[in-house]
Design a protein around this nucleic acid. Sequence first.
DNA 1: CCAGATGCTGAACGAGTGTTTAACCGAGGT
DNA 2: ACCTCGGTTAAACACTCGTTCAGCATCTGG
Lengths: 192, 192
Amino acid sequence: MGAENSKTRLLLLDITERLMLEEGYAAVGVRRVAREAEVAPALVLYYFRTLDDLFLAALRRRADQELARVDRVLDGPQPLRMLWTLSSHPGNTLTTEFAALANHRKAIRAELAAHADRYREAQVAALTRRLAETGVELPDGLSPAVLLVLTNALGRILMMENTMGMTTRHEEAVAFVEDFLKRYEGASASDA
Amino acid sequence: MGAENSKTRLLLLDITERLMLEEGYAAVGVRRVAREAEVAPALVLYYFRTLDDLFLAALRRRADQELARVDRVLDGPQPLRMLWTLSSHPGNTLTTEFAALANHRKAIRAELAAHADRYREAQVAALTRRLAETGVELPDGLSPAVLLVLTNALGRILMMENTMGMTTRHEEAVAFVEDFLKRYEGASASDA
DNA sequence: CCAGATGCTGAACGAGTGTTTAACCGAGGT
DNA sequence: ACCTCGGTTAAACACTCGTTCAGCATCTGG
């Protein structure tokens, strides 16, 4: 079985990601990935014994990157603002695609649930710490964890609706978030 | 082409819905649906010229039911509480499955986007009206539309995470909602 | 220089898919 | 009695799919 860092192996993972993004997970198959890599179909199964293994490897790689990103992004000033950019970042589209995949591939479901769990707890920890450090006071009854779940949910849904071409009432929702951010952290520091 | 209300036709639609719920949209196929209905595969294509047509018919039927449900449910007392039950109702799992389907069936995508649009506007209208009628005052900057989008988003995400076996921080989020409801509408009227 | 591991291929198997076509069955109306 | 017509069928077409297996290169270490 191929080495962890084989050039071909990484190429196959890249193609898998790209296909999922551009055409949905259903476009990913042994033959299709092989064709895009200009390689024989059997080679894909040489690196990943089954198609599930390919998906799992792609998920794990992505999950690690995302987890690292949380601490890096949330570390700047204005953690609330950073949380919002993190939650509404288009890069999460891939996670959404994995979520859809998980609906009918139980091997994926378990792994994705575990990742989502770690991801959320990492965010809670980082956000709680940063809020204390920057001295931001949340309104009564709104804990960092709740704010996080709400923000993640809103960001994800807006993205999902966007990709299917629906934007009804999105501006109002985004304006509300902007307003909230301004109230608790002042104007965006990256505005000129 | 079969009559709109043929017994067989409705049976096929029922089976399609059930399969989507229990095994995901990928389980729906001409042959599979036929087998469950104890009928020849070609008959499915007799009623729905293509598989896309079957999905579309199922979507349309469901969409109409949901749309009717909005007014019916939101019409009681405590519209905010009703909005929350509507948003976190497990019946929405099917819509989520349709959303996943829409990711790689463009014929579905357009129809679903249109439905989601109508659905949201119907909710905004009903909620706005009911809030005025019951005299509930929302906090500053929180319009009915924004509250609606937030509630829908949270409900959907909690459901999606639930079905994949992840519940991290859900209790806190739900408790927050309960708290909010109690503050603006008092205790649940259906509690003994 | 040879053995053996590593990377890679072509061909096949078995099963699944959506869709089309021609034909059959059983009632209802004329 | 005939004929039409909606509902229904079996069979075939033309794919695509995941997976397996035997074997061919190429490179490396002893």
